[in-house]
Design a protein around this nucleic acid. Structure first.
Length: 594
RNA sequence: GGUUCAGUAGCUCAGCUGGAUAGAGCAACGGCCUUCUAAGCCGUAGGUCGCAGGUUCGAAUCCUGCCUGAAUCACCA
C-alpha cells in the first residue's frame, strides 16, 4: 500500500509541479494515533518542488491522489502532514494479504541463504551458571531463531572453558576435602557440587594468605607463597603434561558439571548444535600462532613470548603465547575460529559475549584479518551489557550472584502461587498445571531480560524486577490464552471464521490491530539487521495490549452480525498466530490456558 | 590518561533510518467483575529527554565540546 501511494505522490508532483522526485525523498509513515487517518505523507521535503506553503502543497497533492487512488477514502491536512484515510476495501485487502501469509511467516528473509554460526553461553566448568549467563543464553538463543527466521542457515555453538587454573582449584579442593563424595552420594546437582569445592578452595586459600600477611608478608609475597595456590599451579602443569591421574580427575569432575549444565539448559529451553571445548582447540591455536610467526606477522621477544603489534591500528601489542609456550585466551580463540570455519565454511559468525570483552574481539578479528583469512570479515561480536544488582555489580568471588537454577525455580514457584491466589486452573490435572506454571515463570524471566536493549546494562532487583503484570511475558501469554479461549468456544459453537467481509465496517481498534499485524515482518527483519531481540518484545507487547483492549471493548462471539463475527474470529486467529510466532522467536513458550 | 558504550517520569524500560502534543509498566490515588479469562480495562498525578552550542522547515534522535556513570587498556578466561 505504501508503495502505491509513493507512486501516486511521485505522479502528483510530476503532474502538478513538473518535477521528477527521486526515490528516498518521499516519506510515507503510519499516522500517529491521535490524528485522523491511516497513512501520512510528510510534505516538507516536497516544498522545493512546489514552491508553495506546506498546507497548500499538502492539500493539492491530497486532492490529486484521492482522485487517482480509489483505496483512499479521504484526506486531511494538519500543518505539513497529509493524512490519508484508507477505505474499508483497502483495509480488507490488507487483511486478506496477511491471512494468506499466515502459514508462511518465514518470509522476513531475503537474499541467498547464508551459513551463520552463533556462539553463546561459554561457561567455565568450575561453577554453576548465574544471571549473567541467563542473559547470554537467552540473547544467543533468540538471536539464532531470529536469524533463522530471516533465512540464515543457523548453527548454535557453545565453547566450554574446560581447562585452566580455575578447574584445577576445584579439583584440588575436592581431593583435599571431598572425602570421595560425589553428586550422586550427596544428591547435589553436579555443577553446584563442583562449584562448592571452588568456593572451598578460595576460602582455604584466602585464609592461608591472611595468615601469611599476619606474619608480616606483603599481599604479593603471600599470594606467591600460598601452598594452595602453588599446588593448584602444579596440578595445571600435570594436566598439561597429560598425567593420567590428573586428567582422570579432570574428566570426572567436568562430567559432573556437564550433567548439571545440561539440566539448566533444558530448564531454560536452550540448546546447541555443536559444543566446542577449549581443551581441544588451544593446540590448533598454537599452531596458527607459529605459522603466523614464520610468515613474520607476529614477533618473538627475547624471553620467547610471542606478540602481535597492533599499534598501527591504534591498539596495543597483544600477547599470543607465553614464554613457556603455553596458550592464552586469544590463542585458543584463534584456534576455535579456524576450526569452526573448517567445520562449517560460515558466512557469518556471531559471538554472544559481554561487553567487557569488546577489546578482545576487536583484536581477534584484526589478527584473523592479518593472518589473511578472508572470512574474518564475517565475524562479529554481539556485545551485550551487564546485569547489575541493587547492591551493584555481580561478583562471583564474593558470592554476590543470582544463581540460575535458583532463579528459575523461584520464578516457577511464584507463577504457581500467583495463579493459585487468583484462583485460576482450579480443576486441572497437576501435571498439566506444572507445565503451565513453568511456561509462565520462564516467560516472565525471559521477557523481562529480552525486552531491554541488549547493549545496555540492566538492573535486576530479585524482589521487585520480575513482574507478572503490565509489560511482561505473562501479560502477552494471558492475551494469547484469551484468544485461544475464544477460538475454542467458537469451535464448540460451530461458529466459523469468515473471509467475506465486504459488508462490514471496521472500527478503529480493528484497524489499529491490522496496522500492527502488518508490521510483523518489518520488525523481525529489523531485529535481525540490528541484532536486537528487544524490538520483537516491545512490538509484541504493543500488539497484545491493543488486542486486550479490543476484547474489552467489543464482543466477539456475541456479535449478531454474522460476517462481522466471522471477521473478528479470523482476526483473533491471525493475531494469536503472530503473537505465538513472535514469542517463539524470543524462545518463550505459550500456554493454551492460564 | 587512551578507547568503546551509556545518561529519557520517583523506579524499570520503550521511542524505527531526524517529523506532529515524548510513551508504557511499576509505585501513588480514583473508578470497573451477572456478559467470550479482572495476570485485565478506564481515569488522575508525575518530564528543562545529563548540560551548552551547532546543522534545518523541524532534534530525545545527527555533529562538536563539557559533566556523570560503566567496561576495557593483564603472561585471567
Amino acid at each position: 500500500m505504501e508503495k502505491i501511494i509513493e507512486q501516486n505522490v511521485a505522479c502528483a508532483v510530476k503532474d502538478l509541479y513538473g518535477s521528477d522526485v527521486e526515490t528516498g525523498v518521499l516519506q510515507i509513515q503510519e499516522t500517529r494515533k491521535d490524528f485522523e487517518g491511516d497513512l501520512t505523507v510528510v510534505v516538507f521535503p516536497l516544498l522545493r518542488f512546489s514552491g508553495k506553503s506546506p498546507e497548500q502543497t499538502a492539500a493539492e497533492i491530497g486532492e490529486y491522489i484521492t482522485g487517482i487512488n480509489p483505496g483512499i477514502e479521504s484526506c486531511s491536512v494538519v500543518k505539513g502532514f497529509l493524512n490519508l484515510s484508507l477505505g474499508n476495501s483497502a483495509w480488507l485487502a490488507e487483511f486478506d494479504k496477511l491471512v494468506s501469509e499466515k502459514d508462511s511467516l518465514r518470509q522476513a528473509g531475503r537474499g541467498e541463504q547464508q551459513v551463520t554460526l552463533v556462539e553463546y553461553s561459554s561457561p567455565n566448568t568450575n561453577k554453576p551458571l548465574h544471571l549473567g549467563h541467563i542473559r547470554n543464553n537467552l540473547l544467543g538463543f533468540s538471536l539464532s531463531r531470529i536469524l533463522s527466521e530471516c533465512g540464515h542457515k543457523v548453527f548454535k555453538t557453545n565453547i566450554v572453558n574446560d581447562r585452566g587454573i580455575h578447574i584445577c582449584k576445584s579439583m584440588l579442593a575436592w581431593k583435599l576435602f571431598g572425602d570421595g563424595k560425589t553428586p550422586e552420594t550427596t544428591g547435589m546437582k553436579g555443577d553446584h557440587f563442583v562449584g562448592k569445592y571452588y568456593v572451598e578452595f578460595e576460602n582455604a586459600c584466602s585464609k592461608e594468605i591472611r595468615e601469611l600477611t599476619d606474619r608480616g608478608m606483603t599481599p604479593g609475597e603471600a599470594a606467591a607463597g600460598s601452598k594452595m595456590m602453588s599446588e593448584a599451579r602444579e596440578m595445571l602443569r600435570r594436566w598439561e603434561a597429560g598425567d593420567p591421574e590428573t586428567v582422570g580427575l579432570w574428566k570426572m569432575m567436568n562430567s559432573w558439571v556437564y550433567e548439571g549444565f545440561e539440566e539448566t539448559y533444558r530448564a531454560l529451553g536452550v540448546d546447541f548444535d555443536r559444543i566446542y571445548y577449549e581443551s581441544d582447540t588451544y593446540k590448533l591455536g598454537r599452531d596458527i600462532v607459529n605459522t603466523g610467526l614464520e610468515k613474520g606477522i607476529f614477533r618473538r621477544k627475547e624471553d620467547g613470548s610471542v606478540w602481535v603489534d597492533l599499534t598501527s591500528d591504534n591498539l596495543d601489542e597483544k600477547l599470543l603465547l607465553r614464554a613457556d609456550g603455553t596458550a592464552v585466551y586469544m590463542t585458543q580463540d584463534l584456534g576455535t575460529a579456524v576450526e569452526r570455519y573448517n567445520d562449517y565454511r560460515f558466512d557469518n559468525q556471531y559471538y554472544v559475549v559481554g561487553n567487557e570483552q569488546n577489546y578482545h574481539f576487536q583484536v581477534l578479528k584484526l589478527i584473523l584479518e592479518k593472518l589473511g583469512y578472508e572470512w574474518a570479515g564475517g565475524i562479529y561480536h554481539f556485545s551485550y551489557g551487564m546485569v547489575n544488582l541493587p547492591e551493584g555489580k555481580m561478583k562471583s568471588r564474593e558470592g554476590k550472584v543470582v544463581d540460575a537454577d535458583d532463579l528459575i525455580n523461584t520464578m516457577i514457584k511464584t507463577a504457581r502461587e500467583m495463579s493459585e491466589e487468583l484462583g485460576k486452573l482450579g480443576d486441572y490435572p497437576e501435571e498439566e498445571k506444572d507445565g503451565i506454571y513453568s511456561r509462565i515463570g520462564l516467560g516472565a524471566l525471559k521477557y523481562f531480560i529480552l525486552k531491554v536493549d541488549p547493549r545496555k546494562n540492566m538492573l535486576f532487583d530479585p524482589r521487585e524486577s520480575i513482574d507478572f503484570n503490565g509489560n511482561t511475558g505473562p501479560f502477552v501469554q494471558y492475551t494469547y490464552t484469551r484468544i485461544r479461549s475464544v477460538l475454542r468456544k467458537a469451535e464448540e459453537m460451530e461458529v466459523k471464521s469468515s473471509h467475506d467481509f465486504r459488508s462490514i465496517k471496521l472500527n478503529g481498534k480493528e484497524k489499529d490491530i491490522l496496522r500492527l499485524l502488518r508490521r510483523y515482518h518489518r520488525v523481525v527483519r529489523e531485529a535481525a539487521d540490528e541484532l536486537n531481540p528487544s524490538y520483537i518484545a516491545n512490538y509484541i507487547y504493543e500488539l497484545s495490549r491493543e488486542f486486550n483492549q479490543f476484547y474489552h471493548d467489543y464482543t466477539i462471539l456475541g456479535e449478531k452480525d454474522e460476517s462481522l463475527r466471522g471477521f473478528r474470529i479470523a482476526l483473533s486467529d491471525l493475531t494469536g498466530r503472530v503473537i505465538k510466532r513472535a514469542m517463539w522467536l524470543l524462545g518463550i513458550e505459550m500456554p493454551e490456558r492460564m
